[in-house]
Amino acid sequence: MSALNWQKSSYSEQASSCVYVAAAGDGTLRIRESDEPDTVLWTTPDALRTLIRGVKSAEYARRR
């Protein structure tokens, strides 16, 4: 795999809790967290967009 250009999320304020995203050459996205940089998740842009929209709309909020 070629080197990825990791970008830190603009919402990550503390160095110990940063989320990084990189675009891979195959059209997928890679996501990692600063505490576990060797653990990398991959997803598609559409799937990540759906997750972010759901979180913002509180679709995934805990129900009591």
Rank of each mutant, 00 (worst) to 15 (best):
A3S: 14
G54Y: 03
I52R: 10
S9R: 12
A58E: 14
T44R: 07
K56A: 08
A58M: 03
S17R: 12
G25Y: 08
W42M: 10
R63D: 05
L51P: 02
S57F: 00
G54R: 07
S10V: 15
I52T: 09
L51Q: 05
I31P: 05
Y20Q: 15
S10A: 15
R32N: 04
K8L: 06
L51M: 13
A15R: 04
E33I: 02
Q14V: 10
S17I: 03
G54Q: 02
R63P: 00
R63L: 01
T44L: 03
T50Q: 11
R64V: 00
T44H: 05
Y60R: 02
I52P: 00
T44P: 03
D38F: 05
L41Y: 15
S9K: 10
A23T: 14
D35T: 14
S2V: 08
R62E: 07
S57G: 10
D46P: 01
P37W: 07
S17H: 12
A15H: 10
S16L: 06
W6K: 04
L51S: 05
C18R: 07
G54V: 06
S12K: 12
K56N: 04
T50H: 12
L4F: 13
P45R: 09
V40C: 06
Y11D: 02
G25D: 14
V55G: 02
N5D: 15
T50R: 13
S10N: 12
R62M: 04
W6A: 01
A3I: 06
R64S: 13
R63T: 11
A22G: 14
N5K: 13
D46N: 14
L41V: 11
R62V: 04
D35L: 11
P37T: 09
R64E: 07
Y60K: 08
R62Y: 10
A22K: 12
S16M: 05
I31E: 07
Y11I: 08
D35V: 09
D35P: 00
I31L: 15
A61T: 01
A47H: 07
V55K: 03
R32G: 00
I31Y: 09
V19Q: 02
N5C: 05
N5L: 13
V40F: 06
W42R: 12
A58K: 11
M1N: 10
Y60V: 02
I52K: 07
S12R: 13
R49G: 06
S17Q: 12
P45V: 09
D38H: 13
R53C: 06
W42V: 10
Y11K: 13
K8F: 04
Q14P: 01
L29F: 12
D35A: 14
R32K: 15
R53L: 09
